[in-house]
Nucleic acid binder design. Structure first.
Lengths: 123, 123
DNA sequence: ATCTCACCTGGAGTCGGCTCCAGGTCAAGG
DNA sequence: CCTTGACCTGGAGCCGACTCCAGGTGAGAT
């Protein structure tokens, strides 16, 4: 199995549920991914890793299958997802700040405690 | 139920699994969250929303229960999580760029098609 | 006084997203 | 020629994180 970045089982699963159109097989019935498949898988990876649920990816897949006249819909779908990603990043940044603040706070406690030990162990 | 940002069921679940220490009750047996509880819940929200699995939050909760001598461990845990969040944000940004690129590409197709229609509808 | 209603409990169910299993098929290497 | 190993299939199982259910309780409104 070529390194698509997904496990074989996951690829089979994606094909089963229709997120991938039926993959071509060689004489022995084994999947042979085309460049086209790999391109689509790249898209899937991108959407999945940015948190798009499978149900929505299925909708996107359906739109791409339905032809050129769905392009406006596809743009809308992606643009909305893009907005969600934007929001997600903003929230992550904010929460990261809180985590870092907490770490710094702990560091403060730690240096105070070290100070205490210092004076306690140096009478 | 006060707005902790979690559903009542989720709060009960968190208490059951030990992510929250047992919550004080009023005479009727209903939960009354203290400021301390709310502070901890804020932390939980922060960690959860940045993708920390419950198992790791449980570990963090255990460390805080175990007292001051675990502070170095807590710093380490949070610092490592912080690194993961950093990586997550970087990846999201990258993938967002790909999504935006795709949107632009679709827009290009769309304007070409519109152009075609234009010339097609204007003989 | 009775009704509504928001909470309580333990336990079971759901959902998304995989992941594993048993049994079978080919192709190539020793 | 036989074994190994990577793939095939349909279907079942698993995991994390909730979410819902049935039956019950006490407090306040009508």
């Amino acid at each position: 199995m070529e390194e698509t970045g997904f496990s074989l089982d996951t690829l089979r699963y994606y094909e089963r549920i229709g997120l991938l159109e039926p993959i071509n097989r060689n004489a022995a019935g084994q999947r042979r991914f085309t460049e086209h498949d790999l391109g689509w898988l790249g898209m899937v990876r991108c959407l999945r890793d940015t948190g798009m649920p499978i149900a929505e990816m299925l909708r996107f897949a359906q739109l791409t299958r339905d032809g050129e006249h769905t392009i406006a819909d596809r743009i809308e779908l992606l643009a909305e997802h893009d907005r969600r990603v934007e929001a997600q990043v903003a929230l992550l940044r904010q929460q990261q700040t809180a985590i870092q603040y907490k770490i710094d706070w702990y560091r403060g406690v730690l240096s105070l405690t070290a100070g205490q030990n210092e004076s306690a162990t140096m009478p």
